[in-house]
């Protein structure tokens, strides 16, 4: 038995050794904490950036990725997950990083072009082949026999965009009569059978588990499904109005200063705005922010009428979040059993 204990100790050391990452001095590692559907995008982008940084600075950089629902990721960063850069999908979560933990300055959004949003997307409907329920617009989603798939806005940034897009439609339709708008939202959520915690969970539910008739999806996720994941099985329907979703990125000052990675982290985000970065962004079905690249790929994206969150209807993320997604907000009112 004593032999057994010795063996255990040896094994422990053996396992411990490789698990403690030994990084050579000149190498650098950064962690990118991102939301759910950007997995494929950053997998390719990280390779491109590693190559670029090796040529430019002669340094080997390894980019680690962490993906989950945006709310969960923001919470983890606030609780101390040492992200050098965050690439989340609503500005509100990044504001929270400033307010709750002072990880970034208040004017973080001014530091990179286009309000720190290197790409954009929007919300579209993904329906099954042939559109059996004949879904054309938001109105069709509240019909009694239609199953709508969307994640939970409390934990998923994408779902917040879905929610606001639906709200925008209803506000326009009922001329901002809040009672009627709320009623519309209530009917919409009554048709939701599964409320996953992240966008990826919802895609799985809709595509793999065949639940629901329409999936309120990121445009890039919808294109990923129709072009690569299950070609020919699904169709994209563009509603009469949607929302311009702009996922913001930033470096986390507190972390990069502590780890001495400010230079490489900043370059990582700036490279997203380069031609190479924008090409990769376009390849993964996001809408590039550089005008010339955007023009080049314009034909690939459906024409959508888009409202922004800064529209007077919402008044920016802070107001929108306070009204819709805080404790007791619109979403909670809808789900009051």
């Amino acid at each position: 038995m004593r032999l057994g204990l010795c063996l255990l100790a040896v094994l422990t050391i053996l396992f411990l050794a490789p698990a403690m990452p030994a990084v050579a001095a000149e190498d650098v590692r950064i962690l990118n904490v991102s939301y759910d559907p950007t997995r494929e995008l950053y997998e390719e982008y990280n390779q491109a950036f590693t190559k670029y940084w090796k040529e430019k600075a002669g340094q080997d950089v390894t980019v680690r990725q962490s993906h989950a629902g945006a709310g969960k990721q923001a919470r983890a960063v606030i609780d101390g997950l040492e992200a050098d850069v965050v690439t989340l999908n609503v500005a509100y979560d990044l504001d929270a990083m400033h307010e709750k933990a002072h990880l970034i300055p208040a004017d973080w959004q001014k530091r990179l072009p286009n309000n720190s949003c290197p790409y954009a997307s929007t919300i579209v409907f993904l329906v099954r082949k042939g559109n059996p329920k004949n879904i054309k617009d938001w109105d069709d989603l509240i019909k009694p026999d239609v199953g709508v798939i969307t994640p939970n806005p409390k934990t998923s940034g994408g779902a917040r965009w879905n929610h606001l897009a639906a709200w925008a439609y209803a506000s326009r339709k009922f001329d901002k009569d809040e009672a009627k708008v709320l009623d519309f939202m209530r009917k919409l959520y009554a048709n939701v059978p599964v409320l996953d915690t992240g966008a990826r969970g919802s895609t799985n539910t809709f595509v793999q588990r065949r639940i629901g008739d329409v999936f309120l999806a990121w445009e890039n996720e919808a294109l990923l499904v129709t072009e690569r994941l299950a070609p020919g099985e699904f169709e994209i329907v563009v509603p009469s109005i949607s929302i311009l979703a702009e996922p913001p990125v930033t470096i986390i000052d507190k972390v990069v200063d502590k780890r001495g990675t400010r230079k490489v982290a900043t370059a990582y985000l700036e490279y997203l705005y380069s031609d190479v970065g924008q090409e990769i962004i376009a390849k993964h079905h996001y809408r590039p922010s550089l005008p010339e690249i955007a023009k080049k790929y314009a034909g690939r994206y459906p024409e959508v009428t888009m409202i922004t969150v800064d529209d007077e209807l919402f008044g920016g993320w802070q107001k929108a979040h306070a009204k819709h997604f805080t404790e007791g907000g619109v979403f909670d009112q809808i789900f009051r059993p």
Binding site: A76, I78, D79, G80, L81, E82, K100, A101, K258
Partner: peptide, 18 residues
């Protein structure tokens, strides 16, 4: 980081959570 020992751990560069 928002916890009881978070600030102390962070000051001494000890990572426990995550």
């Amino acid at each position: 980081a928002q916890g009881l020992l978070g600030p102390w751990l962070s000051a001494h560069d000890i990572k426990i959570i995550f």
